[in-house]
Amino acid sequence: MTTATLTTAERPGTPAGPASPQPRRRFKVTPGGAAIAVLALFLAVVWLMPLVWAVLTSLKPEPETTAVPVRWLPLEPTFQAYRTVIAQGELMQWLMNSVIVSVLVTALTLVTCVMAAYAFSKTEFWGRKWLFALFIAGILVPPQALIVPLFDEMTFLGLVDTYWGVALPQVVAPVMIFILKRFFDAIPRDYEEAARIDGAGHLRVLWNVVLPMSVPILAAVGIFTFVQAWNNFLWPFVATTDPALMTVPVGLGTVQSAYGILYAQQMAASVLGALPLIVVFMLFQRQVVRGVTDAGLK
């Protein structure tokens, strides 16, 4: 949704596509510019090295992975590790669980936080200021401090080892209300007043006026919620004991028996586990950087 409009709007001038080109520098290479490029590329290579190492290891036959001295390139590259990991099926199940949980968390967060932010920004009701102050105070509560009583509660509710039990506590992210409210506050009242005069109720105003003007911030909140839910470890780890319900971080982290000390398989599973978000980032890179700006996180 965001992609189309944002990319077409920004892309024409800069084919390579970074957010901040310096057109004047492009024509001649200054010594300072070259030094910066070399340093930047060196740091990039250092940062990519673990990933390259993981990918190369995943392409080795198992005996080659533990050879001494350490070799970077596989002597006989093979996809055997990937075939084995996929055939075992566990990882595919975890990926599926991660998709279900992350989509659930993101959808619920967007719906509940958008509605609450709209109420705080555009309506008046008894206790509005107090409730908002309470939610803001909730930002300070670290979820890690709640795992023990939360597990107790989930046992009582019978939600341990269910998708809902994993997802629901992650929806409580009051900071998203704060971010959305600030964005809604900036929408001029004239728009909604015009709609209200035409007889639109709050739901119509939210859906037809406010939301269409808030696409960038919705994308930002959605992307960040999704990434957080996808990578969350502690709570899903506490809330699931059944390997069939585990998300990728929990499954890969705890089910050692799955791959044992077979390093090529471990690395193949790692590459597959990391791939979805990295592909998403490559597609939405510009929106992610823009989103940080829009969310006012600067």
Binding site: L41, V227, P249, A274, I278, F281, V288, V289
Partner: peptide
Amino acid sequence: TARIGWFLRFSYFAPFLMPVA
């Protein structure tokens, strides 16, 4: 320069997207 900006953003940020395990 603009040309390597994409590569730099990817290299520096990609690890953050990886699950802890």
